[in-house]
Design a protein around this nucleic acid. Structure first.
Length: 359
DNA sequence: GAGCATGATTCGAC
DNA sequence: GTCGAATCATGCTC
């Protein structure tokens, strides 16, 4: 009677258990767990080790423009990430081991108990499933805290503000040269930005940031930047003077009798665009692209004047500065160089000297 | 360490 | 999208 009753009880439990399990087994994968898994995989924490690197480390390298100045910090970052990875795997292993041990323990217990009460193998199996689910929720917590650790590491090592580095002296000089030679309209076009970025080994957005900061700070404190402006003006003027002198020589060599007719007004100057605009603002002459050849001598004179001015304002201009705030309009905005003034009325046409097109 | 310089970010306007 | 303006966070100089 006892064995028969035992088997009936087992059968009843089996049926009720199946119905419960049927409802539980087809749980969809936890989206939260999937997210965590994906993130850990992307960060190189889980999954196969990627030669000491990860997507984030690669991003860090890219963010720095591939320069070697902070490679030490990148290796530091990688080291920390490796540390996190090791801790994660150690903990994961521990959990798995504990899970297996506990499962075995429970299974043995149930098997033992099955001699005295109705416990079927399927019930044991179900119990194992419950244990696994419990342990996987613990695993999820581990994954979550690992993700948090990676996030903190990333923000600490990759946050641009924390990683601020001053640009190289050369880069700053290039940017300043452009800024002061385009002071009438210091808004570089996309092409110009790209060119500058390339020259300075920085990104285009860094160039944009630089010009944004420069414009605002220049405007706020023109007096402070005066000396700097003069310095770069002198530099540009010297460069231009050389170019003009070369052009003069070239003109004379090409057509000694008609010095102004040789090159159809096209001689190449570095930053020739606004430099002449600045000179225009200095002496009131307007620059006509097609008249360059005709005005070579006057431009040389202007350049001499510029250089003299930079040498200490000793030419009787009463302390007038090279770059006076006249480029800023009454609202504090940059006055377009083409805006007609009371003296000159340059027209913005195909022969315009503007190199900037963004504004 | 204070103060200034400077690169980056954020926010609102356009 | 870019811009100016304000602000933050870090670097540099003294």
């Amino acid at each position: 009677m006892k064995p028969a009753l035992f088997s009936v009880l087992c059968e009843i439990k089996e049926k009720t258990g199946l119905s419960i399990r049927g409802a539980q087994e087809e749980d969809p994968p936890d989206p939260q767990l999937m997210r965590l898994d994906n993130m850990l995989l992307a960060e190189g924490v889980s999954g196969p080790e990627k030669g000491g690197g990860s997507a984030a480390a690669a991003a860090a390298a890219a963010a720095s423009g591939g320069s070697s100045d902070n490679s030490i910090e990148h290796s530091d970052y990688r080291a920390k990430l490796t540390q996190i990875r090791q801790i994660y795997h150690t903990e994961l292993e521990k959990y798995e081991q504990a899970c297996n041990e506990f499962t075995t323990h429970v299974m043995n217990l149930l098997r033992e108990q099955s001699r005295t009460r109705p416990i079927s193998p399927k019930e044991i199996e179900r119990m194992v499933g419950i244990i696994h689910r419990k342990f996987s929720s613990i695993q999820m917590q581990l994954k979550q805290s690992t993700c948090e650790a990676v996030m903190i590491l990333r923000s600490r090592f990759l946050d641009a503000r924390r990683k601020r580095r001053n640009f190289s002296k050369q880069a700053t000089e290039i940017l300043n040269e452009y800024f002061y030679s385009h002071l009438s309209n210091p808004y570089p076009s996309e092409e110009a930005k790209e060119e500058l970025a390339k020259k300075c080994s920085i990104t285009v957005s860094q160039v944009s940031n630089w010009f944004g900061n420069k414009r605002i700070r220049y405007k706020k404190n023109i007096g402070k930047f005066q000396e700097e402006a003069n310095l770069y003006a002198a530099k540009t003027a010297v460069t231009a003077a050389h170019a003009v002198a070369a052009a003069v020589q070239n003109n004379q060599a090409n057509s000694p009798t008609t010095p102004n007719s040789g090159s159809s007004g096209s001689f190449n100057l570095p930053n020739s665009g606004d430099m002449f605009m600045n000179m225009q603002s200095l002496n009131g002459d307007s620059y006509q692209g097609s008249q360059v050849g005709a005005n070579v001598q006057s431009q040389v004179d202007t350049l001499r004047h510029v250089i003299n001015q930079t040498g200490g304002y000793s030419d009787g201009l009463g302390g007038s500065s090279l770059y006076s705030p006249h480029n800023l309009n009454a609202n504090g905005g940059w006055q377009d160089a083409t805006t007609p003034s009371s003296v000159t009325s340059p027209t913005e046409g195909p022969g315009s000297v503007h190199s900037d097109t963004s504004n």
